[in-house]
Simulated assay, not measured.
Amino acid sequence: MKKTAVKLSLISSLISPALMAQEKIPSNLLRIGDGSYYSEYAVVVDKDKRLTSVWQNANGKLQKVKEYVNDLGKASGDKKVEGDNKTPEGIYFFQSVLQGNQIPYEKYGVKALTTNYPNLFDEREGKTGYGIWLHAIPDTESLVRGSEGCVVVRNKDIEEISKLVKLDDSFFVVDDSLTYVSEDELVKKRSEIEDFLKTWRRAWSEKNIDVYMAAYSDSFYSSKRNKKQWRAHKSRLNKYYKNIFVEFSDPVFVEVDDQIKVKMLQHYKSDVMDDYGEKTLYLEREETGLKIIAETFKRADRKKAAEIISIGSLLRDQNISSMTDKLEKIGATE
């Protein structure tokens, strides 16, 4: 309770009436968590304006918590290779906190948040390099000295940001130039992704291999399988399992330059297994529409995941509910 009170107090002190009245929000933040499972905070960097902002999902509405002036890499443009002194553009997560004697104060200030650059999208594009962080800088140093690719803010700013974000959870989005849209426009973009996920999920549950595989890019590669091998793998499972039931809950997704990362809780059930976990999809916009280029799955805390999914899956529309009823009648669920 004490930590929650401190966090709420911090948020209240940071959000001004002018910011709360703001109508436009970054088009990148299609859907972030509400705090029940995924973090309700996201950090967004606008390289063009040299500004870093923290956004919060407050009861389903995105609002800016605070904005900070930042420094960037000494060279302009998107990072391509190690040593080019450019700040990468993409979808990242904070991985660890470095502070005190872990880092030299003169270069990194009081604290640094490491990131997962290069991410999967970066690796697929052959980008190289490492050590891209969001870190601080002593007050005696200029915020225009240029970094080796990191995003840099003041000491007091990194302290505020680090109190709100969650490691391996809160999105860290870096874009060349942010586009701001209304809530209605964001909902429209969000619906496109949700409709894609519903169609894919339904085809998976119905064992409709053609519709299911239509969601995948020709460049798909995951679990040491390309698209052709993935289809053969899924076809074998469809024959092995009499019934398959799949549902998702609490999906979160953001987009940068036609690249979209989706994370969501997954409940997969067949006549021989019953599993809960987290599904991650990597999507790209191609000429024929949204396509999956990679996906991963990791098991989650079964009790917590089951409780959240039982509240209601966002991706369970009327058609999907009918499918659930059908599967229950034929014995797909307990």
Results as ranks from 00 to 15, higher is better:
T4R: 10
L8R: 14
K24N: 15
L29D: 06
R31V: 08
I32F: 07
Y41F: 15
Y41L: 04
Y41G: 05
V43L: 13
K47V: 04
D48Q: 14
G60E: 03
L62R: 07
K64H: 14
K66C: 14
D71V: 06
A75Q: 15
K79I: 09
K79E: 11
K80V: 11
K80R: 13
V81P: 07
T87Q: 10
I91A: 03
I91H: 07
F94D: 02
L98M: 08
L98R: 09
Y108R: 03
V110Y: 04
K111Y: 04
A112V: 00
L113S: 00
T114Y: 00
Y117R: 05
H135C: 09
V144H: 13
R145D: 13
S147V: 07
V151K: 00
V153Y: 06
R154G: 06
I158P: 05
I161K: 03
L164N: 07
L167W: 01
D169M: 01
S170D: 01
T179K: 15
V181W: 02
V187N: 04
V187D: 08
E192Q: 14
K198P: 12
E206R: 09
V211N: 11
M213E: 05
S222L: 09
K224D: 14
R231M: 02
A232H: 08
A232R: 13
H233I: 02
H233N: 09
S235H: 07
I244E: 14
D250Y: 15
D250S: 15
F253M: 02
D258H: 12
I260W: 04
V262L: 04
M264P: 02
Q266M: 15
H267Y: 07
Y268E: 05
D274K: 13
D275S: 12
L281T: 04
L281V: 06
E284D: 08
E284T: 12
A305N: 08
G312C: 05
L314Y: 11
D317T: 07
E328D: 13
G331Y: 08
A332G: 03
T333E: 04
